[in-house]
């Protein structure tokens, strides 16, 4: 049998009589489900909520679904800028190191390699040790 809502002629006739349609009446056909909330859920006391030690999660509330840490995005951009700057510095140091090595200044080339290593550590720190993402 089709749902009453799918039969507009019956809906129209019910409305015309001024009484609610049976399918739209509030409550349940099972009386036990129509008891007051306190009767249905005796575990929920008037003090339930943030003061209830059983409540571990706030659940959806004010701010739910939004960014809890708005500065996180700016920090990510900042970390990216730091790493890009480090890479630019490394490219410069590599050029200096190659020139020095080609001119026979091997120790200068190794100093440049040390600089590259330190720069990499900075880039690694900016990448791995940023604020925890949600």
């Amino acid at each position: 049998m089709a749902h009453p809502a799918d039969r507009p002629e019956e809906f129209r006739s019910d409305s015309a009589l001024g009484a609610a349609a049976p399918w739209s009446a509030p409550g349940s056909v099972q009386p036990r489900l129509n008891r007051p909330v306190a009767d249905r859920y005796p575990q929920i006391r008037p003090t339930s909520g943030y003061g209830d030690s059983r409540i571990r999660r706030s659940g959806p509330g004010p701010g739910a679904g939004t960014d809890h840490d708005p500065e996180r995005s700016a920090m990510l951009t900042g970390r990216l800028v730091v790493v890009l700057s480090v890479v630019v510095g490394q490219l410069w140091a590599l050029g200096v190191g190659v020139d020095a090595w080609m001119q026979g200044h091997t120790s200068t080339a190794w100093w440049c390699t040390g600089f590259e290593g330190l720069s990499f550590l900075i880039a690694l720190a900016a990448w791995r040790f940023g604020p925890t993402d949600h």
Binding site: V87, L91, G97, V98, A109, T113, E116, F120, L124, A126
Partner: peptide
């Protein structure tokens, strides 16, 4: 941006490897 961050950190490591190779004398001179 996180992908860029990861890629650039990897590039940074590659530059270190390249620099070590240069200083160790891999290139003909």
């Amino acid at each position: 941006r996180r992908d860029y961050l990861r890629v650039m950190a990897t590039v940074s490591g590659g530059l270190v490897v390249g620099s070590v190779a240069v200083s160790a004398g891999v290139l003909p001179r």
